[in-house]
Design a binder for these strands. Sequence first.
DNA 1: TTTAGCACTCAGCGCGGGAGAGTGCTAACA
DNA 2: TGTTAGCACTCTCCCGCGCTGAGTGCTAAA
Lengths: 344, 344
Amino acid sequence: MKLDSRKLQILQAIINDYIITAEPVGSRTVARKYNLGISSATIRNEMSDLEEMGFLEQPHTSAGRVPSDKAYRLYVDRLMRIRELTDQEAEYVKRTYQEKIMQLEQVIFQTAKVLSDITDYTSIALAPQLNKVTIRHIQLVPVDKDFALLVVVTSSGILKDTLIRIPEGIDSDFLQKVSNILNDHFQGRTFDQIDIKDIAPIREVFARNQKFFNSLVDILTGRLRESQQKEVYLGGTTNIFNFPEYQDILRARSFLNLMEEKDLLYHILSRSNDGGVKVTIGTENPHEELKECSIVTATYSLGDRVLGTIGIIGPTRMEYSKAVSVMDYMGKALSTYLTRLFGE
Amino acid sequence: MKLDSRKLQILQAIINDYIITAEPVGSRTVARKYNLGISSATIRNEMSDLEEMGFLEQPHTSAGRVPSDKAYRLYVDRLMRIRELTDQEAEYVKRTYQEKIMQLEQVIFQTAKVLSDITDYTSIALAPQLNKVTIRHIQLVPVDKDFALLVVVTSSGILKDTLIRIPEGIDSDFLQKVSNILNDHFQGRTFDQIDIKDIAPIREVFARNQKFFNSLVDILTGRLRESQQKEVYLGGTTNIFNFPEYQDILRARSFLNLMEEKDLLYHILSRSNDGGVKVTIGTENPHEELKECSIVTATYSLGDRVLGTIGIIGPTRMEYSKAVSVMDYMGKALSTYLTRLFGE
DNA sequence: TTTAGCACTCAGCGCGGGAGAGTGCTAACA
DNA sequence: TGTTAGCACTCTCCCGCGCTGAGTGCTAAA
């Protein structure tokens, strides 16, 4: 059976209607609302065909039809018209990035907030992944006789710091010396490139302070990386209650539980980090709990290096045209902002 | 009318039962389950009295009775028996604090998690309030030619840091000089005690770099403080779905929306910072949205200085005996842990 | 190939009645 | 005088019923 242009028109009408109303769409509705110049009976026949082809589903006999994931996919790839941001929306984004926030966390957090405000979906933003950025500066800052602060600044302005206990008899000159060595070795590298073997030669500098040396290595190769990698910021989690399909308490609950699983979210989002906007519809996502959700992601970069991912998540009946344009716009706006702030 | 011991017994029975079942309690239930040696008819009479005295309420005729806020207050103050933590619970807490987490944020976050895990309520933890801690060390760390990092370490191990743009022609010697001056002036003080007037004499050191000077002051007196003050960590927000009174989607939604309002939560929690465990029942809390919730808070300290507040929030029908004991225990455990880590 | 007409299906809704839980009153009892 | 058994009454909850309306698929005619 061929998907001729009339079938496409009907399919598009059904998808449009269902996205707005969340109610199964019947042949009469299509005939009335969308002047296609054909009768409901003809539309009925076409809809029957579309169902057979897997684009439509029927919740039960005597209900209208609902688009399938396959239909949404077709819609996203071929049918939908990208809808530009309104002036207000663009203005809102601009205003957010006008403030000179110097802490990256804040920037990412704000981005998530803007995304959920504009789209009314739930937004997710991943902090930059450390294996994507290079180390710009390492410094051990003496705090008092027992503690020093290990600060690592990366090319994207990420700051990672930890208090570290220092053994007795270490003075600030020694700390400075260590800082210099660390900088010499690791400046310009990514965290992935920090290798135990590289570190070995430094070991001798530490003389009797092997324990101190070990904890430094520990932090640089392990802890900092982990703590950063799973940083997931959410916006508008309770927006989900706006959708009729989540009036059911069990569904809402399982959705919100899912949003608490930062590890999972991290994995879902970080799969798409090859740049550009990506749409994952319903069962295209391998996770069972997400089979009735769609996710639209975009990446953000510093210069030409992709740093991380931002995304929104909502019911499969999502306003894709808006979602895609917003994600595209925000990914670019965030990249521009970061490059301006931390550009190399 | 006097609240004799039999009335108290009956009231206690009703509260106990209602806490467990969430169902209005009838006279027959009390007679059957709690062997008080009196018939349901007598209990009925007493319940009628208790209602008149404001301790019980009736959702509608032909339903059992439900304890009022006044009843819970009486229960918390006079009737309940504190229930110690089980060995597993104590063990869980101990294990959590055994790990050497050096970042305060992590500690507070973990504390919130433990609280919600043990109690099955939603937990809230405030990061230490900056006006409660003293500045231990200030350091400007050079990053590259355009940026420096302003690091402030406080007595409780709180770290606040911001990237700050430095004007051209400032070298690391100058930064060190500034750091020294800042330390001389502010070490040992609280953020509240940083006064513009104190800073004025330093101004001359900056000579032509007034703009740099201004942004430093800005950060120290304003930005750092604000960013920290509102840091609110939540645990187990979706636990609310476990309670039958929150099966209603509107209620669940308004509760979860409330939990997103960090500012509000901050204010609610920070009211009780005079040490010890505090219980706020239903309408005792001025916030309309909380009139069917109870909050149990405790404070945590470093040495003898109260730093912040932790709390749990649940329906008024809360297991107060457990809640109070857990909060008491956790407040102390957290204080001990912090004092061990950052003790002065 | 399209359309009008028609029988059929099924979810949703409102209604009514029965069951069950609980109360308050009354009268009898210790 | 306090306590208890008995009973009528109330009210929510739940279940089943039938109606309505939206929508379909089929058939036959244009």
